[in-house]
């Protein structure tokens, strides 16, 4: 009886309630992505903007470059090296955050229930803290006059400051620092659901700690590992602020390269094409992620 009433109040068109949200998102998030795709096949305007003439030049320049002087066409090494550097730095960031994040998440998940909330809260604060503030904090550490160099010079390990700022190392340290909480939280969620009796069983079967970690723990928390890696990898790949501030305008990542095309590079179609490429890479990673995680976890 009541079942029928509920059916009436939550009729088949109940989802219509989500239309305002969908409209706003299509208008101010998804829709404009289509415009980016369109711009990528137009001709570049003088200084900025586009001319409404169909042109493959934007996409051509993603992969190839025409020499300014002899007009020879060659593979765009510089572009590819920026993509390559971004992928390398993002992978390295993911690995570092995993190496630090797994023990951290494990540590939190194995605290007594009473204090666990406190440790969890400690990791949530940086998670929600402004990215810019965290980047600024790490800048203060790696600068020539920063904490790290000053400390090293005070103990006499070095006599001259080490140049870390404006190098790839600085960008890597910065990204690992900024994205670490993104790795810890999903790992924690996975470990929290973990049945510790399985470890006991492992030890009872004379497995070493390493074997237990490798053969029992890691396979079970794999969804958490994949989720954490995706959560770190995607924003690292599209990072803009951290490489901008720590890389000194010389060590670019894809995000900065895209921005360059809309500013000093004055080539909007190329910028639009590069954005589309970045978007495609992310979509592919996401598809791979859903495939892998649904295979491992048919119920989730």
């Amino acid at each position: 009886m009541s079942q029928r009433r509920r059916q009436r109040t939550k009729g088949a068109n109940g989802w219509l309630l989500s239309t305002p949200a969908l409209i706003l998102l299509v208008f101010a998030a998804s829709g404009p992505l289509l415009i980016v795709a369109i711009y990528s096949v137009l001709e570049k305007g003088d200084y900025s903007g586009v001319r409404w003439i169909l042109s493959g030049d934007g996409w051509f320049r993603v992969l190839f470059e025409r020499d300014i002087f002899d007009q020879t066409v060659s593979l765009a090494d510089a572009n590819l090296s920026i993509f390559w550097r971004s992928v390398k730095l993002s992978v390295a960031t993911t690995l570092i955050t995993f190496a630090l994040g797994l023990p951290t998440a494990w540590f939190i998940a194995t605290r007594p229930a009473k204090v666990r909330a406190f440790w969890l809260f400690l990791i949530t604060i940086p998670f929600w803290t402004n990215l810019l503030i965290r980047t600024f904090a790490i800048m203060e550490v790696v600068r020539n006059e920063g904490i790290l160099n000053t400390a090293l010079m005070n103990i006499g390990l070095i006599s001259e400051p080490i140049q870390i700022m404006y190098t790839d190392t600085a960008v890597l340290i910065g990204m690992a620092y900024v994205y670490l909480p993104l790795m810890v939280l999903p790992l924690y969620a996975a470990i929290d659901r973990f049945d510790f009796r399985l470890i006991e069983a492992g030890y009872d079967l004379y497995a070493s700690r390493w074997q237990v970690l490798r053969s029992v723990i890691l396979p079970i928390i794999k969804p958490g590992i994949i989720a954490g890696s995706i959560l770190v990898f995607i924003p690292s790949l599209g990072a803009y602020v951290t490489p901008r501030l720590l890389g000194g305008g010389k060590n670019m990542m894809i995000g900065n390269f895209i921005e360059l095309q809309f500013g000093q590079g004055q080539n909007w179609p190329l910028g639009a094409a590069l954005s589309t490429v970045l978007l495609l890479i992310v979509l592919v990673s996401l598809v791979v992620y859903t495939r892998v995680s649904s295979r491992d976890n048919p119920h989730g």
């Binding site: 989802w15 998102l25 998030a29 980016v36 995607i234 924003p235 599209g238 809309f262």
Partner: peptide
């Protein structure tokens, strides 16, 4: 359902720089 979920969660997936560029143009 899937389409609605994807659109609702889209800002979590698309790199911010891409959305930023898209909105700049639009």
């Amino acid at each position: 359902q899937t389409v609605i979920y994807i659109i609702l969660n889209q800002p979590l997936m698309v790199p911010e720089i891409v959305t930023a560029v898209a909105l700049l143009i639009f």
